[in-house]
Design a protein around this nucleic acid. Structure first.
Length: 842
RNA sequence: GGGCGGUUAGCUCAGUUGGUUAGAGCGUCACAUUGACAUUGUGAAGGUCAGAGGUUCGAGUCCUCUACCGCCCACCA
């Protein structure tokens, strides 16, 4: 590492970021075991593992930044800080990617075979798996790479299998024939959560079913006429007067000519369609439940490839689409179609590929969720886990209270194969292949979220009782997007309460989604997305980080656009130049306030230190960042440094800057690290990194009097600038200003500063001149123009109005009686002051 | 059908248990190149805090209702 003596005029992130990250990584400080100092109290975060072959998007970037802020802050505070990174095998989405790849070679996975296909996926993982971890480095994440995990690592795989076997033996996992969501494209079952409802335009068909005994037919409405082949009843609502007399009678399903009963069931809506519904228990979730309640037979007419089964008679082998066409023709001929209407409704689709879901009866593995949910609910109810923002607790409870058994088996190849072995009629749950000949493993794999659910403890060595588990589990904070509250957070809580008998984390912090400038979800295909990595090249990583954290609130979605990023880039550059200026000053290390400004900025630093720490500890990252932004730019740079040019105190400036840089470091680690090197550069300390102690408030520097006196000077300066601007005095012209009224001594003491910051020649003393402006009881005069006259008039009107308001408030006995003394006094002195100000302006 | 969030300056958003004349960034306008910074400085304009009612001495903040926008959950075929 070489230090240039002079810093470049503008901050150039590209040239230094990679280098800085390398220095961090080499230092070993990301590893809690290698951190300097005695660190007793642990602080741990498990990184939500991104898809191993995915791209880092803004959601990741937001999460990583927030996590890094917490981690760096705690590390500086002296905690034994662990941020454990990793990646997820992402069953379906990775498999889809590789399937697409081999499709371009003209092969499908079945032609390739399971072993060969899996080899290709591993190859793909090997090829692209480091891409995402590089991007995580790019965003500045200070995670412990020596503990990096992948959900399909041998150790994690063993943990997953162990978990399955344990739950199976405990009766919490069972295999059963149930109606499930089947994706005909993925050729797999998926869980309820992976189903997304999308509006689609379909037709609503009104079909007549002949009533036995020759009475008028009953008409049912359906969007899926092809399922009629599997109808085993027609249902109406028990309260529906129109159909009361039909209940108990038989109708004939057309084409198959099957007699089925008309039943009454509460699940039927009277208002929809005709109020009568055909019941196909094998191919509709509601019908399945009606079937269960009424003990109806189940006839599967559609198979897992979305083709008709032999139960469909002559339609066997036809696709559902083809079958529908043929069936409609036949119904038409038989006079069974009453009418057909256009109909737009929400259709269940596969979250991954948007294919319409085919509900069907299938033999799958399920987790019995009721007992797990009970404990997961208690964990949050009793406050062992806090969700930030708290309103998501309600959402969480609602979901947990209505949870249904979780279908965990997938007919995919990429994932953890289910550790169940079959041999004839024998079934065995075992991590290893049972002894003896003829054992065959269940071909299905587990839902990715099953393994993710174990993430916080499996990555720490579970099921072994490791030191890491003892020290870092439960982890401190889980930071993630609210969109995976159910998918992941809820499952982790269930799993940890069951396996660990403790919560997986104490706090859940949920960040919002990053939207585009119009508040829409960013979409790659529409080109509305912002890719964070090129942005880090263009504006620097620190600027991206700030733009993702500032101006946001927990759980609240945020819009991001380039102008926002560039404005934070400007701030970084400002900080850079503050340091550049500081480096031009003599290298003093003593911190001795000599002037009012010195005392003021030191006092402000104490408040800022205290507030920043408080904000960070209460997860108010935006407020912490905004405070530092404001302090550095609008107090340190705009005021203190300008004053320093008249009354330099290099020691104080340096101290305030260094402390501020420490406070800012969790937000903008790169620029602060770089500046730290330059500011503290000395022989033999070149590799000193910013893993320094977190600033603490120094009571000795807290100085209310200095803050109050300084505000008087500041207000006077602003008032004079204001007056000059209104009087159209060009900035380069020095004007004479005389001041009188209050604070004469203070003004005289700081004459040089005032003159410099306002470009005036100041004389103080008594005067009966007509004042141009007034501030805090100080009046001053400068040559009056027509412009200032007008302005004074409007100011007088404003003051009069304000006085009226205050008088009215203070005349109110209720206010004086009930409001805190402090508030009443505040208003009284405000009134007095405003009256004085008005007097002086007359 | 349930539930949640949003509605604050032209735009994007902050605003902790209710308490000074409601803030920031960007944009706009005027002026400026004074020892770091034009990725800058100084100043200005700009808001009946969606609407209505209520509680209170006092409401952007608490309660009720309404409107619009967005989202989540849910078995209307």
């Amino acid at each position: 590492m070489t230090f240039t003596m002079k810093l470049s005029k503008a901050y150039e992130p590209q040239s230094i970021e990679a280098n800085i990250y390398k220095r961090w990584e080499r230092s070993g400080f990301f590893n809690p075991d290698k951190l300097p100092g005695k660190r007793m109290k642990p602080f741990a975060i498990s990184m939500p593992p991104p898809n191993v072959t995915g791209e880092l998007h803004l959601g990741h970037a937001t999460g990583m930044t927030l996590e890094d802020i917490m981690i760096r802050h705690k590390r500086m505070q002296g905690y034994k800080t662990l941020w454990l990174p990793g990646t997820d095998h992402a069953g379906i989405s990775t498999q889809i990617m590789v399937e697409r790849l081999i499709a371009s070679e003209g092969v499908n996975r079945h032609a390739l075979g399971r072993d060969k296909f899996l080899k290709r996926v591993w190859q793909w993982k090997k090829q692209y798996g480091t891409h995402i971890t590089q991007q995580i480095r790019q965003i500045g994440a200070s995670c412990d790479w020596s503990r990096e995990h992948f959900t399909m690592d041998p150790k994690l795989t063993a943990a997953v299998q162990h978990a399955f076997v344990t739950m199976y033996n405990d009766g919490l996992i069972y295999r059963g024939k149930r109606i499930i969501n089947w994706c005909p494209r993925c050729l797999s079952a998926i869980s309820d959560l992976e189903v997304k409802h999308e509006p689609r335009k379909h037709k609503l068909y009104f079909l007549r079913y002949k009533l036995a005994g020759g009475a008028a037919p009953i008409t049912v409405a359906t969007t899926r006429p092809e399922t009629m082949l599997g109808d085993t009843a027609v249902a109406v609502n028990p309260k529906d007067e129109r159909y009361k007399s039909f209940v108990g009678k038989k109708v004939t399903v057309p084409i198959v000519e099957r007699e089925v009963p008309v039943i009454a069931d509460r699940g039927v809506e009277q208002e929809f369609g005709t109020g009568a519904v055909k019941v196909t228990p094998a191919h509709d979730a509601l019908d399945y439940e009606i079937g269960l309640r009424n003990e109806l037979p189940i006839i599967s007419v559609i198979d897992e490839h979305a083709h008709m089964t032999k139960e469909a008679g002559i339609f066997v082998g036809k696709s559902t689409v083809e079958a529908r066409r043929l069936i409609l023709e036949e119904l038409q001929e038989g006079g069974h179609i009453e009418k057909i209407e256009d109909y737009e409704h929400n259709v269940a689709t596969c979250d991954r590929c948007h294919t319409e879901i085919e509900p069907l009866i299938s033999l799958q593995w399920f987790v019995k969720t009721a007992p797990l949910a009970k404990k997961a609910i208690a964990a949050v109810k009793t406050g062992k886990i806090h969700i930030v923002p708290a309103r998501f607790e309600k959402v969480y409870f609602h979901w947990m209270n209505n949870i249904r058994d979780w279908c965990i088996s997938r007919q995919l190849w990429w994932g953890h194969q289910i550790p169940i072995w079959y041999n004839g009629d024998k079934v065995k749950a075992s991590v290893a292949k049972p002894a003896g000949k003829g054992w065959k493993q269940d071909p299905d794999t587990l839902d990715t979220w099953f393994s993710s659910g174990l993430w916080t403890f499996a990555t720490l060595g579970w099921p072994k009782k490791t030191k890491g588990l003892t020290l870092y589990h439960p982890t401190s904070v889980m930071e993630t997007g609210w969109d995976i509250l159910f998918f992941w957070v809820a499952r982790m809580i269930m799993m940890s309460m069951y396996f660990m008998k403790e919560v997986p984390f104490k706090t859940v912090y949920l960040h919002g989604l990053v939207l585009d400038k119009d508040g829409k979800k960013m979409s790659k295909s529409k080109g509305t997305g912002i890719d964070p990595i090129p942005m880090t090249q263009k504006y620097g990583t620190d600027a991206i980080r700030l733009s993702l954290v500032l101006g946001t609130a927990a759980g609240q979605d945020v819009r991001l656009y380039e102008e926002k990023i560039s404005s934070y880039r400007n701030f970084i550059n400002k900080l850079w130049n503050i340091a550049r200026f500081t480096l031009t000053q003599p290298k003093e290390t003593g911190v001795k306030p000599k002037t009012l400004a010195d005392a003021w900025i030191l006092s402000r630093l104490q408040t800022v230190t205290k507030e920043t720490t408080g904000y960070l500890e209460s997860f108010r990252f935006s407020e912490a960042g905004a405070l530092l932004y404001d302090f550095l730019w609008h107090e340190l740079a705009d005021w203190y440094i300008e004053i320093t040019k008249v009354a330099p105190n290099a020691g104080v400036l340096r101290h305030v800057l260094l402390e501020s840089i420490k406070l800012l470091h969790p937000f903008t680690p790169f620029v602060t690290e770089e500046l730290w090197s330059h500011l503290t550069a000395a022989k033999g300390t070149k590799d000193m990194l910013m893993v320094t102690s977190w600033p603490e408030t120094q009571q000795g520097f807290v100085n209310a009097k200095a803050e109050s006196d300084f505000s008087i000077i500041r207000e006077f300066i602003v008032a004079v600038r204001n007056a000059r601007s209104n009087a159209k005095v060009p900035p380069h012209v020095f004007s004479d200003v005389c001041a009188w009224g209050k604070h004469q001594k203070l003004l005289q003491e700081h004459q040089a500063i005032i003159e410099r910051l306002t470009r005036i020649k100041l004389t103080c003393g008594e005067s009966d001149a007509k004042p141009t402006g007034v501030a805090r009881g100080m009046a001053f005069a400068l040559a009056v123009t027509e412009e200032t006259g007008k302005r004074q008039e409007s100011e007088r009107a404003q003051l009069t109005e304000y006085i009226k308001r205050l008088e009215h408030q203070l005349a109110n006995e209720q206010f004086v009686k009930n409001a805190p003394q402090q508030v009443v006094e505040g208003q009284r002195s405000k009134l007095k002051e405003t009256r004085n100000r008005l007097d002086q302006l007359k």
